[in-house]
């Protein structure tokens, strides 16, 4: 697939156009990535499609081969993989806190100890998610602005 980047006048609206033979999984991956950079993520709940604003997301969790997005009260399923979100959300306020969870740091109200060198994020909706030991040094760096 060729990649062409064209500079446009600042008075115009920025756009991305994909020329493809058919809209397959590869194209959908690109669209999903672009949307996630723009501020929303495609997700499904009860067979209905939704655009979830990134700022509303509390955390994302991978369970088996599926990825779930948790908002204040509701849970949605998304086709994206956790490592894709880790990459696309890394320069936002999200951080990987365990093998299966990425958390929105803006939704964390406190960090508590959780036995054996682990910690626990207490979210503003009362939910708790575990920070595994492996990710503690990276979280500390991110919170201090060293990353």
């Amino acid at each position: 697939m060729d990649i062409r980047i064209q500079k446009i006048d600042e008075t115009g609206t920025e756009y991305i156009e994909i020329g493809c033979y058919k809209v397959d999984g590869r194209v959908q991956d690109i669209v999903r990535f672009v949307k996630s950079r723009q501020g929303s993520i495609d997700a499904v709940k009860d067979e209905q499609h939704y655009q979830l604003p990134i700022t509303d997301i509390f955390y994302l969790e991978a369970v088996d081969d599926k990825t779930f997005i948790y908002l204040k009260k509701d849970c949605y399923e998304t086709r994206g993989r956790l490592y894709e979100f880790e990459s696309s959300l890394s320069d936002r306020d999200f951080a990987r806190i365990s093998k299966s969870v990425i958390v929105n740091l803006m939704k964390v109200s406190a960090i508590k100890p959780a036995l054996n060198g682990r910690f626990m994020c207490v979210l503003s909706n009362g939910e708790k998610v575990i920070i595994s030991r492996k990710y503690v040094p990276d979280i500390k760096k991110k919170l201090k602005g060293e990353e």
């Binding site: 306020d93 740091l105 100890p113 910690f119 979280i139 500390k140």
Partner: peptide, 19 residues
């Protein structure tokens, strides 16, 4: 761990103010 968690919470609050 509680001391470390307190420090992390303080850093988190500073991070949230910066963002």
């Amino acid at each position: 761990d509680s001391k470390a968690a307190e420090k992390m919470t303080a850093d988190l609050e500073a991070y949230q103010r910066r963002s």
